[in-house]
Design a protein around this nucleic acid. Sequence first.
DNA 1: CACTTGACCTGTCCGC
DNA 2: TGCGGACAGGTCAAGT
Length: 299
Amino acid sequence: MPEGPEVETIRRGLAEYVTGQHIAGVDVLFARSFAADRELVERVVVGAAVSSVHRRGKVLILELDSGWVLLIHLKMTGQIILVKADGGRLAGGHPNESMAADLPDRSTRVVLSFASGKKLYFNDQRKFGWMRLVPKSELAEDLSIRNLGPEVLGTDFSLEYLRGQLKRRAGSPIKAVLLDQTVMAGVGNIYADESLHLSRIHPARRAGSVSPAESARLHLAIRDIITAGIEHGGTSFSHYVDSLGGKGDYLDQTRVFRREGTACGVCGSTIIKTRVAGRGTHYCPKCQPLPKVRKTPAT
DNA sequence: CACTTGACCTGTCCGC
DNA sequence: TGCGGACAGGTCAAGT
């Protein structure tokens, strides 16, 4: 579920609440969510303190003072929920749940207990998410990190770089390129649709057909949309609540995502939902036209 | 190599 | 109300 802006929002919450906290215990309720040897966990996690919290793409990086890092990927349905020592929910969780903590629940996969009494619950309904331990010295080479493209808000995500990637992936639908984490890190399905609408490019266009002017619009749009997402604290719906405890409100702001059947805010045409690159895809047929007809009428 | 598809899971929603 | 099927925000491995 979470894309770059959601993960960044969670990162900020974690940085505030767990930096400097000592980890007193680790409970793994579902083994594949945190496939680490118990002996290793006891040696490098239990008793260690969280020295800082980082993010790369959609991966959360908790740096421990043991020389190891704890990586977390939330995939589709992962959540981080922080609970105070007295059991009251400090942050995170499902918007429909009461604030009274009744955790762990059936989707809790891992629990970190801090010496202060705070607890961090890693909930993940669909079990796609994971936590992993990596020596800090090997972080850059880790499989989850090493193939990631530049952060879209970083200086190395230049227009020139984007143009090169569009050329390399000329045969793919532009939407597939935006979702490819080796091209750029942090963009997911929502922000891909939003960026393409803002830059007025049809999601099924081949990347190679995108003009220089369109590329420039797209480059700007991706940065603007991701920035807005972070400013609004991420997108909030079924599974997402940021770890500061407030709901993100970006979904209220979307231009096309989950707005099929409603009027485009720019031109008033009806937003369409279709399937591109195997993913649910929303766009405005008037703002984002296909330049050439896909199926030629028989004549 | 570039690109597509299926698999990983559980839950929900929609049509019959 | 129950049941089958499609679908859900992300990545991989394996296929063409």
